[in-house]
Simulated scan of single mutants.
Amino acid sequence: MLSWFAQTWEDAKMFMYSILLTFYEMFRDLLYWLMESFLDLTIVILNGLGSLFDGLDVSSYINSIPPSAAYFASASGLGQATGMIISALTIRFLLQLIPFVRLGS
């Protein structure tokens, strides 16, 4: 009689453990589904944002600068200064991605 009770107890423990694992798998699948839905929605939004910039043509704005302003900008080195500033900002943002390198910035 005692062996029957022990076997029934072990079967009940295994059944409860399998129920617990089932709920864990269901919760994990729900989180995966929510994350996938969020990422699919993000892709749809980003694909829609691409059409907003179709009418933006930067070269037309650069070509419409008056010749005197273009001469002054090139004589004062505005192109080189802009390039240095953009490269410095790029290096700074890339260094922010490395842990323990955020030295006060």
Rank of each mutant, 00 (worst) to 15 (best):
P99R: 00
E36K: 06
M1N: 07
L41S: 12
T90H: 11
L41C: 14
L95Q: 04
G79A: 03
S87A: 11
L78A: 04
V44D: 07
P99H: 01
L89D: 06
E10P: 01
E25D: 11
F100N: 14
L31Y: 03
I86W: 03
M1C: 09
S68R: 07
F100M: 09
S51M: 10
F23G: 04
S68V: 00
G79P: 01
M26T: 08
L39Y: 12
F100L: 11
Y17W: 12
I91L: 13
G83M: 01
F72E: 15
Y17F: 11
F5Q: 13
M26F: 08
L46Q: 07
Q7K: 14
N63C: 04
D40S: 02
V44W: 13
S64R: 02
I91H: 06
G79T: 12
L94F: 01
T42K: 13
A12W: 09
S18L: 11
S68A: 11
A69D: 08
S60N: 10
E25T: 14
T42C: 12
M35C: 05
Q7E: 15
T90K: 10
L2W: 07
I85A: 03
L34P: 03
S74G: 01
I45Q: 06
L41A: 07
A69T: 02
A70C: 05
A69M: 04
G48N: 06
S51N: 09
S51G: 04
V44P: 00
T42E: 12
G55F: 02
L20K: 13
E25C: 09
L39Q: 10
R28G: 02
Y61S: 05
A88E: 07
S60C: 04
L20P: 03
G48I: 00
G104A: 02
D29H: 05
S105E: 04
G79Q: 04
P66C: 00
L97K: 01
S51L: 08
D11K: 15
N63T: 08
G77K: 01
V58Y: 05
T8V: 15
L21S: 05
G50E: 14
N63Q: 08
F15M: 13
L97Y: 01
F53P: 05
L20F: 11
S37A: 10
D29K: 08
I45A: 03
D40W: 07
L89Q: 11
L30N: 11
L56W: 14
P67N: 01
L30E: 12
S51V: 02
F53S: 15
T90L: 14
S105K: 04
I86L: 13
F100R: 05
G79E: 07
D54Y: 03
D54F: 06
A81G: 05
G83F: 03
Y24E: 07
L97D: 03
Q96I: 02
S59C: 05
A12L: 14
E25I: 15
L34V: 11
W33G: 15
L97M: 05
P99A: 00
L21F: 03
Y32P: 00
A70T: 00
K13R: 15
L41P: 02
F72C: 10
W4L: 15
I91M: 12
D29M: 09
S60A: 14
